[in-house]
Design a protein around this nucleic acid. Structure first.
Lengths: 113, 113
DNA sequence: TATATTCATCGTATATTTGCGATATAAAAT
DNA sequence: ATTTTATATCGCAAATATACGATGAATATA
């Protein structure tokens, strides 16, 4: 973009947008699904479950980790990832904001367009 | 990207990622908040509420409309937008998938990393 | 110790997104 | 009929995101 106007928005809007961006790629959705399914934290198995090169998967994992949606620790030769449910559930609950705003205005039921 | 591997993912993962992408920008979050607050559908007021040029806002509105999160109709000289709550609420409910997967594996409580 | 395995990071190519001025379109006002 | 107003679209420039091969670092194995 010509100018980055991101900082001119409210902090909570930026935060929600950043979290949404973190899951705005099918590979990262797929990674989260794999992690949600696994009882034990997996690592390179994620690569096998995706149609992407190892380097690319590692990059997606890094993105999810940097936003906090997943945690990762190195266990010997392998890396172990899992969902940080605190962050994840809090993220989901943020969407309630829209319903609250609508409820205050009692708008949701009436479709005007 | 060198190669577009998007189509090699599951359709529902692509759909969820696309919806997440639609709200992955603070301007689009802000637009949805404005629309949720308003009893009547607004139009150019959105432009005034954002730190962006009219052309840019129009582009964001187009994105939200094309994914279906908002509806828009032309009313005389102005355009009227509002949230499509059916689509929006269904989108939010899709996030339940992760919790379900985790519950089946009874993983959510135990943090392994 | 040498080698293999696992994963992260670097560098790079390409694709997509973002932003805006300029312009088009269409209704309303003069 | 002309001008103003509201909005969409086009075309471009700059920023980001995506993908991967090559390489590095660290551990495990022969």
């Amino acid at each position: 973009m010509a100018i980055n106007r991101k900082m001119e928005f409210a902090a909570d809007e930026i935060a929600l947008a950043d979290l949404a961006k973190a899951i705005s790629h099918p590979a990262r959705i797929a990674i989260l699904k794999i992690l949600a399914r696994q009882k034990s934290c997996i690592c390179g198995e994620i690569v096998e479950g995706l149609p992407l090169a190892q380097a690319t998967v590692s990059q997606h994992l890094k993105e999810l980790k940097s936003i906090g949606l997943i945690k990762g620790t190195i266990e010997g030769k392998t890396s172990c990832y899992c969902i940080d449910w605190d962050v994840f559930n809090q993220f989901i609950s943020h969407f309630g904001v829209f319903a609250e705003l609508a409820q205050n205005a009692s708008v949701q039921s009436q479709s005007c367009c």
